[in-house]
Simulated scan of single mutants.
Amino acid sequence: MQDSVTQQEYKNFFQKNINIIICCIFCTALWGSAFPCVKLGYELFNISVDDIFSKILFAGGRFFLAGILVLLIATCIQKKFPTLKKEALKGIFLLGFVQTTLEYVFFYIGLSYASGFKGAILNPTSTFMMVILAHFFYKDDKLTFRKTLGCIVGFIGIIIVNLSGDVSGQSSFLGEGCLIISALAFALGSIISKEVTNVEDNPMTVTGYQLLIGGAILIVLGLIGGGRLNVTSINAMLLFLYLALLSSIAFSLWTTLFKYNPVSKVSIFNFLTPIFGTILSALILSEDVFNLRNLIALTLVCIGIYIVNKPKEKEIVN
């Protein structure tokens, strides 16, 4: 009798959260596709490995366009152009600077010095960082043994994936180091986002202005540094548009999910990002990712994230 009740409780829990599950999977699939597509974008726009400011300009254009797209969609939905509350201005500017400018300055630099697979597997370190930050920001989300164990297991995976010959000297810092800093910016941005949406009710408005502000700063930085974009083909423009749409859709959904759901309930799905990133890196970039070391590392990262975010039984019952 107890078993049937338990099975029904799990079924009810799944049905109640099916929309959240679908949206989270969709977001992580989009973000997973970004790793190989960004590297492909460098090739199509003739951006060399050491041309840092052109990469920053590339990022700025992508997110500025994404912000415009989000605001246009919000305008169509609301039948008027979305405006910001005065009390939300400071928070949205900070969010745009941290989760768009800082995150993607380091992301774009790091990805040019690391494989698409490493980009995909290092990015989820933001989940562990969010667990640690939540300890200081939220009284009801303190570190526990389970969360600590999950972080340890996940970081063992991070160490394993970096035990290769290409991790040395400057390349290691500019590649893996920048990707980890990017993950920290995403973690900080997620917490800021949850606070900002408590002031500004519409998540799409928050996302649109965040991307617009952060993208504009990136464009200015790229131009000041002498960055240039060379449009070489229709394929290059189509890829650029896809990356902008990717950001506008994924960030809008993610911001909405964080506004109406606990951080841990949404964060559990971050483990899907490296899986999608790994598969798509193999398909698009023809990278050799399916070796024993990388598969073990990826498995450990996924297990670590699951342990950190595993729901308690009372959450399923409720």
Rank of each mutant, 00 (worst) to 15 (best):
E176F: 01
I52D: 00
L298E: 07
K139T: 04
M204E: 03
C302S: 09
L179D: 03
T28W: 02
R146K: 15
M130T: 10
L283V: 08
I158Y: 13
T255Y: 14
C24Y: 02
S164W: 09
F145N: 02
L295A: 09
Y108C: 10
I56P: 13
L211F: 04
I21R: 02
A74G: 12
A74F: 06
Y242K: 14
F251M: 12
L292D: 05
D288M: 05
R293D: 12
K265C: 03
T299A: 04
A66Q: 09
V196N: 04
D288C: 04
G110M: 12
S48R: 14
E195D: 06
E87R: 08
P36S: 12
N17V: 00
N270P: 06
P82K: 14
C37R: 07
F53E: 02
S281C: 08
V49C: 06
C302M: 06
I152D: 00
E200M: 10
A250C: 10
S190H: 05
G165N: 15
V220F: 12
L280R: 04
L246D: 00
A216L: 13
S164K: 14
L133D: 04
K79Q: 13
L221P: 10
G110I: 03
I52S: 12
V289A: 08
G61K: 04
S172E: 15
L245P: 01
E43G: 03
V301W: 08
K194P: 11
D3W: 01
S126Q: 04
K85Q: 15
I20K: 08
S48Q: 15
D166C: 12
N261Y: 07
Y113V: 05
N270E: 02
E9I: 01
V308E: 03
L280C: 03
G41M: 04
L221M: 13
G175N: 13
W31N: 03
V105R: 04
G165R: 14
R293N: 10
M1N: 11
I275Y: 01
G150S: 02
V206Y: 06
C178H: 00
A29S: 09
V38I: 15
V231A: 14
L223A: 07
D141G: 05
P311A: 08
L272H: 00
D166Q: 14
F81K: 05
K194S: 04
E287R: 02
K11S: 10
N235L: 07
P36L: 07
A74Y: 06
A244H: 11
L30W: 06
N198W: 07
V231K: 14
D141I: 04
L295S: 15
Q99V: 00
Q8V: 07
L253V: 15
G214W: 08
A134C: 11
A216I: 10
F155G: 01
T232Y: 06
I47K: 02
S182V: 14
L69P: 10
T255Q: 07
S281Q: 07
G116N: 11
V289P: 03
G227P: 03
T28V: 05
F106Y: 12
L218H: 03
F128I: 02
K80C: 12
E200K: 08
G96E: 08
T100A: 10
Y108W: 07
T278E: 01
